[in-house]
């Protein structure tokens, strides 16, 4: 069973983050929300593995600390 990666794994993380912000630049809230929704689906399809996806859904719900 594959494990969800929760250690740093993004190549050129700052560039990715800047790209993410740029993609939302100038969008109305509704369009931005839609973009995020599409992005989630695109990424989920790339991952594919249902165990990893379940772990990701779980990880995205922040734990009380």
């Amino acid at each position: 069973m594959a494990d969800l990666i929760l250690t740093p794994n993004i190549e050129n993380a700052d560039d990715f983050y800047a790209g993410l912000l740029a993609a939302h630049d100038g969008l109305e809230k509704a369009d931005s929300d839609a973009l995020n929704a599409r992005l989630v689906l695109v990424l989920a399809n790339h991952i594919g593995d249902s165990n990893v996806l379940a772990q990701a859904l779980d990880a995205a719900v922040l734990k009380d600390t």
Binding site: D33, A34, A37, R38, V40, L41, V42, N45
Partner: peptide, 17 residues
């Protein structure tokens, strides 16, 4: 609704959706 619409919009261009 947002997620549903995202699926439908993506399905127009990408087979995966």
């Amino acid at each position: 609704r947002l997620l549903r619409d995202a699926v439908l919009d993506l399905s127009e261009q990408y087979e995966f959706a």
